[in-house]
Every structure is written in C-alpha cells, then in structure tokens.
Design a protein around this nucleic acid. Sequence first.
DNA 1: GTCTATACCGCGATAGAC
DNA 2: GTCTATCGCGGTATAGAC
Lengths: 230, 230
Amino acid sequence: MARKTPAAAVSGSTPKDQEKGRTSRLPSVQSATKDLFRREIESPTIQRLLIAAVDCFWKSGFHASSTRDIAKKANLSPAAVYVHFKSKEDLLFRIIQIVAGDVLRQIQETAAMDGDPRIRLWRIVQASVALPARVYKAATVVNTEFAVLSPAQRKYVMQIRDALDDIVESCLKEGCAAGQFQIDDLPVTKTAIVALCRSVLTWYSPRGSLSPEDLGAAYGDLVIRMVKAD
Amino acid sequence: MARKTPAAAVSGSTPKDQEKGRTSRLPSVQSATKDLFRREIESPTIQRLLIAAVDCFWKSGFHASSTRDIAKKANLSPAAVYVHFKSKEDLLFRIIQIVAGDVLRQIQETAAMDGDPRIRLWRIVQASVALPARVYKAATVVNTEFAVLSPAQRKYVMQIRDALDDIVESCLKEGCAAGQFQIDDLPVTKTAIVALCRSVLTWYSPRGSLSPEDLGAAYGDLVIRMVKAD
DNA sequence: GTCTATACCGCGATAGAC
DNA sequence: GTCTATCGCGGTATAGAC
C-alpha cells in the first residue's frame, strides 16, 4: 500500500484502524474470495465447493471444468455436489450472484458518498477496479462465463451491469452539468470507462507490484484526465 | 462514416477511391472476416470451415462448440473436418494465427507511418480498435480462447501481444521524451491503453451507431487526453 | 476429399446403501 | 449428507467404402 490518503479513504479503512496503526485492514488477495463466501454462506461444505469451482472455472473455463474436478478439489465425491446444487450451471450462478451482488453493493455505497463529481468519479473508478481485483478469480468468472447462463440468469447479471453503467453515467452527467467535465461523446465515454475498469481483470495478477487499491487509484487518475477534469 | 479526414486517412482509403466518390472501400463488418480468410486460404472448403468455426466459437465458446456443429454449418459431414485439421484445437489455432497475424501486420504498418507521437498514438489506438472490430467475432475468439491453447501455441499469441504492447510503449516513451505527453506511471498507462482497446470487443456490436473506424477515432481522442497531449 | 458408420471415452447426473 | 456404482448421452476422432 504505497498510496496514502485517497486510496485509504475509499478502501474501507476506518479512523479506528488508522489509530491502531494498521496500514490496512483488507484481507489478502489470496483470502478475499474465501472471506466473501464465508460471510455469505453458512455451510462450510458449500463454501468449499464454491471456492473449488471458482478455481476450476477461472483456470479452465466452465465447460472444461468437470464436476469431478470440482468435487475432488473440495474433498468430496462427485455425487456430493448434487446434494448442494441442482446442476453445474446452478453452481456457477450461485457464484455469480454472490460475487456480483457484493461488488455492486460496495460500488453503490461508494457512489453514494459525498463529494463533487470529480471526487465521486475518481472514487467510483477506484472501487470498480479495486473491488473486483481483490476477488479477481471469482470476478473473472463472472465476466467470462456469461454465455453459459440461462436467459433468466443473464437478465439478472445484465441488471447488475446496467446499475453500474447508470452509476457512471449519472456521475458524468453531473460533472458536465456542473461544467467540470468536458466530454465529446457521453455514451462512448461511459462505455469506455466501464469497459476499462473491467478490462483490468484480463491481465491482473496479484504478483504485480501495485495493490488493487493503488491500481484503482491510478485508473482513477487516468479517467479524470479522460473527462478533462484536472 | 460520419467522420472525415482523420479516420479516412488511416482506414485505408486511397485518393483513387475518393475520386470515384466512394465513401468507403472497406468491406462490411459482416463480410470482413470472410474476406480475410479468402485472402489467406486457397481451399474454399477450408474457408467455409474456418468461418463456421468462428461463428460457433464466438457464439458458444470453444468447448461448447462441437465439431458436429461446425461441420454442419460448413455443409460437411463431421468426419470431413479431420481431413483439413488434425483436431479441434488445430482449427482454433489456425483461426488465431490468421486473425492475429493480420491485425498485427496492419497495426505495425500504422505505427510505421510518419507523424509526431501525438498523431502516431492516435492512429495506433484508432487502428487497434477499428481493425479487430471489423472482424469482431474472429478477434473475440482470439482474445477469449487463449486458455485452450497448448503452451507452444500460447507463446505464439503472447509474442503478438508483446509486439502490440511494445508499439504502444515506444510511442508513449517518444511522446514523453519530446515533452508532449505527461504520464505519471508509464507501465500502468501502457497496459490501460492496450486493455482499453481490446475491451471494445467485450461490448461491440455492428448494430451500434458508430462504424469501427469512428469508434476507433473516438477512442483515439480519449487516449490522447489520458496522456495529456491536447 | 467426402461420405456413413462407429469406436471409445468422459461427461453430467442419478440410484441406493450407509 | 456422504459415499460407491452406474446410467445414458454426446463428445472427438477414426475406419473404410466410394
């Protein structure tokens, strides 16, 4: 964690944490996904299955991952998967629901914070990079395996994507209305910003030198320039 | 084709075309991939197989596309595929070789054009958006099915990606050296620009209002702002 | 080079004992 | 809720006639 104030202010540190002298209260990238599932799911067996499935789907993709692989990685027999999930698709969708829901909620919280459009846009971008990167394997699965889902399931994901789009769009509009942003083509700019944030997952590795939060901060700076708001 | 000079100058129009009063000599997005394969491959049967495979892989992904599906779409029996390709992976790799090679070649030509770093960066970005978008289904397959490839095949693709990275990087360095760009973190900026261009394929549809070339032009403008070169 | 027929395998999912 | 055993389907790839 090289950066100080802005990243720390957005990433969830509380004054209390800082009093204690902690530099970060975030879980490591390695454990963030586990922590998320532990928070959302009671049964330890299901937690293990979800984690195993994320690992398999991330490494090989949904169709190349067999239920046998997943079961083995979760220390279960192949049949045990079907006690907890009605199909492999169901397992995928549960992962997507949990991960996408959690990320959306946190970005909504970020967007609801006070601040002028420049600060808010910077924070939204920072969060849109940092939060998925923290759970990068799971978030990659969410972005990658969209085609596998049923129409109803796709609709669910699309609503979440639309909500994120709207957050960025309304922030851009505010900034334009306040005369703080200069944007040529608002729909293109909005789409570019959202896709830019998402694209981090196509190359991100936790072995890189920047933490998810620092990376998000750097992207926040880039986006601020894109809307000519310096 | 709404834009005039810059996009037209880069997208391959010749003075002769313009004399004739054509607004564009580009193939339609629908036929660009076919044209590419027709240019690179002699056998019409193999052309049909490649086109069918691109369609299947794009729609469902590599593992969810069966060789039966591909053969049927190419009006062949399932067995006929194996006369021309030794495996389904081989078919995929041939697609990737042709598409990635062609795009790289054209971007290299773009990068070799004269102009100061600002013009060159704009053109490189424009081409990096427009060229893949013209063959968007095939280019999406190239970006999406990387995990399927063998180590040797992956290395081939990685060399192409590195070459594209280097083109952007050296242009950014030039611009910084010339005092025309102001960049905080060069590696992050380079990665962001490349990923931004690639991310267009995650949402692009030929039904959108902007042509690939106009979209590339808009992205060129955005990137010029990212490096503070206006 | 194309076809029909088929070998062979591994997948998702289920049955039934414990 | 977990296991072992297994069903049945559909996949990739091949054999052999034309």
